[in-house]
Amino acid sequence: MLPNTQLNFRKLSNSQVALHPNPKGIIQFIGSFIFGSFPAWTYRFLHQYLFDQGYSLILYRFPLNPIEFNHWEVSFGLLKEQYLLKTEIIKTLKEESQPDDVINTYSNPANYLWLGHSLGCKYIILLEISSNEPARRSQIFQECLDKKDADEAIKQIALIESVQQISKGVIDKLLPQTESVNQFFIKDQSSVLLAPEISNTVRILKSGWRISNSLANPNQKQTECLIRSSKELFNLTGVISFKSDSIAEDDVAFMVEQIQHKHFKPLYKELEGWHFEPLSIYIEHLGQSIVDFFDELKSRQSNL
């Protein structure tokens, strides 16, 4: 383990950021419903552990809106924030006269990682699906979504592409000596999903009874179709579940089934605990599992 370093978050753009002095990677975190609205506090033990392992942290706040069911809108908002935030981070590091090798770590999209918990995983999954090759992505949208929703998603992606180009132009001016890497959304970035909750259903006490949210967009059927159809994606995805989790168990089983058929051996682990285990004080086993997953995914990234 690296020596403990004080974890201090600062606000950049609309997110909370803890920049490690010698980062081995940048973890972008999206938490669960409610708890993900206050991630610096509710997940503080997990974040401290990961920071101590040498990772910088970016916390995207889950919108505190109990009637926000348009998950496309939230995902696209997060994507815009990613581009704006990356520019702000590099500006800040330049102003602080940080070494070039540190700044270059943040300019390289391959060093950005994703960590989601519960419903936060769904946003990462939607971003991955949006990162597909344009013609293929449009085909999948048209297969799995209503025409209105497919057209709107394609329209929003086009708008985000303009934000991406603006961000890239600013970074190129800030780092004229650095070779620019054109990263399309989150393509080829590693992600670890903790107890992924993508269907918006809650199973009651391991019975056949479920509470379902039929207003979610995309809904369970559409989300599963999008994932199942995106056969060329999710090669750098790991899944961690919890043995006593009665909330996400069906979605975990679905995601594990999907990564069975990818380029690499599926990266999956079941740990002791319940759905909200990532909020626990005792997170050493979980934290080490996340670090091990990211190490393995980094080696896979170089072999894609």
Rank of each mutant, 00 (worst) to 15 (best):
I30D: 03
A248D: 05
Q189L: 03
Y123C: 06
K80M: 05
Y60N: 11
F51I: 01
N4E: 10
N65C: 09
I281L: 10
F254H: 13
N70C: 07
L64G: 08
A110C: 05
K231D: 11
S180C: 03
A18H: 02
V163L: 02
I166M: 01
P266S: 12
E161M: 04
L236T: 11
W72N: 04
V17S: 03
L271G: 12
N14C: 04
H71F: 08
F35K: 03
I129S: 08
S180A: 13
N132E: 10
L93P: 02
S289T: 15
K24D: 00
W41Y: 06
F45A: 10
F76H: 07
I186N: 04
E272I: 15
I171A: 00
L271V: 03
V74P: 05
V256W: 07
K155P: 00
W72L: 11
L93I: 03
V102R: 00
Q288S: 06
G273Q: 12
A195M: 03
P109T: 00
I204W: 13
I160D: 04
K147S: 08
I34A: 09
F29K: 05
R228W: 04
I160M: 10
P23G: 04
S107M: 05
G36C: 05
G169C: 08
S15D: 03
F184I: 06
K148T: 05
E284L: 14
S302D: 14
L297N: 07
I67K: 00
F242Y: 12
F185S: 02
E270C: 15
T5L: 14
L19H: 04
S15E: 10
H20S: 06
V102Y: 00
E232G: 11
F276D: 13
S212H: 04
S162M: 02
Q139E: 12
D149S: 15
